[in-house]
Amino acid sequence: MTRRKVIWHIGPADPGTAFLADALQGRSLELAERGVSVPTGAWHEIEDQIWKHKGVSLVSTPDISRADADKIALHLTGLRDLEVHLVLLVRDLPTQVYAAWQAGLAHGSTTPLKKYTARLTDPSREHWQAEEFWAGHDLGRILQGWTRAIHAERVHVISVDQDPDASWTALLGAAGVTDLPRPEAFTAPALRAELDPEWVLDVTTAWAKLIADRGFDLQGSVINASAASAGVGAGRSDQLEAVAELLTRATAEVERLTAEVVELRAANERLDAKRLKHKRRVERLRADLSSPS
């Protein structure tokens, strides 16, 4: 009997890997030919699709890394008795910080990069931007919260390059797929924030120690790439170019969604007109039927 197996990308909540869910959906037919299902929808629908598929199911929901204990338990309960593998795709920390700042700009933030990094590196982590970042990026917190009921050999921490192809290849590799190219999709330019090298080394060393102590499957190093790039931030011209490209894409997406809303409203108006017409017709028929012959 074919065993149901779940490969679940749970984080970190790095905007640089957010494209993976749509990319998997874009290659769902090719993956299905290889026996790999890509469940989509609300979580209960994903669970149903996982249980219906006798084979490997591949899921990417990196924002779930922010879940609290109750939400984690709720999600894992529905997968009980399945072979669940948790995958964490970890880009270097300076790149993750820059990507989070960049995503904030796209959603209206006006915080300068230097101030943003200062808030994130403050040991108290009291500012809301720090709390939000670390909730989805602190590897120690994510691993401790998600792995209580998961065998260590089924927890895969994979260090990946900035290039989105690296994340795509790593995730598919975890599902045993090695020959499927990444579909075309926009990913924000991968730049790095300038961070204190000693601070970066302290954070990533603590992560590495936890991974080693718990015996998780580590591919690559969560220390080396971050330590090597910590003191080398993106230049101002590169930052301006990246932000301009991101905002241009965001503006285009807003325009596309606005046009889509206009079309949907027009379609709803047409449907309302038809509904009213049919309602009046029904009322006339009822009146005719109820009148004496």
Score class of each variant (00 low, 15 high):
D68E: 11
L74R: 13
W51H: 13
A67C: 14
K71S: 14
D68A: 04
K52A: 13
G41L: 01
R66K: 15
Q49V: 02
W51E: 03
K71R: 15
D63A: 15
E45R: 06
A69D: 15
Q49L: 01
A69I: 11
L74W: 11
L58V: 03
T77H: 00
D70Q: 13
E45I: 01
S65E: 07
S65R: 05
A42T: 12
Q49F: 01
L74F: 10
W43T: 08
I46C: 12
K71F: 04
A73Q: 04
E45C: 04
L76E: 04
S65L: 09
E47Y: 05
G41T: 07
S57Y: 00
D48M: 08
I46W: 08
K71D: 11
R66T: 13
A42G: 13
D68G: 12
D68C: 04
H44G: 08
R66G: 03
G55K: 08
W43A: 05
K71P: 03
E45H: 10
V59C: 02
A67K: 01
H53R: 07
I64Y: 12
K52T: 13
W51T: 05
G41Q: 10
Q49E: 14
P62M: 05
D70T: 11
E47W: 06
V59K: 00
R66I: 11
E45G: 05
T61P: 10
S60M: 06
I46N: 07
A69N: 00
L58P: 01
E47A: 09
L74M: 03
I50L: 11
H53S: 10
K52R: 13
H75Y: 11
G55L: 02
V56F: 07
P62R: 09
I64Q: 08
W43R: 01
H53A: 10
V59M: 11
T61M: 15
T61W: 13
L58R: 01
G55C: 06
V56D: 04
I46R: 06
S65Y: 10
W43N: 05
K54T: 14
V56S: 05
T77S: 12
D48A: 15
K54E: 15
I46G: 02
L74P: 03
G55S: 09
L74K: 10
L58S: 02
D63K: 14
D63C: 03
D48F: 09
I64C: 02
S65N: 05
E47K: 09
H44D: 15
T77L: 07
V59A: 01
S57N: 08
V59L: 14
P62G: 09
S57T: 12
K54P: 10
D68F: 09
V56R: 06
L76T: 01
D70I: 05
I72E: 04
S60W: 06
V56Q: 04
Q49D: 09
S60D: 08
H44C: 09
D70M: 03
E47V: 15
L58H: 00
Q49N: 08
S60E: 06
D68Y: 10
K54N: 11
T61I: 13
D48T: 15
D70V: 09
G41S: 06
K52I: 13
Q49K: 00
G41R: 08
E45F: 07
T77A: 13
S57E: 12
A69Y: 06
I50P: 08
Q49T: 09
G55V: 03
D70G: 06
K54F: 05
S65I: 02
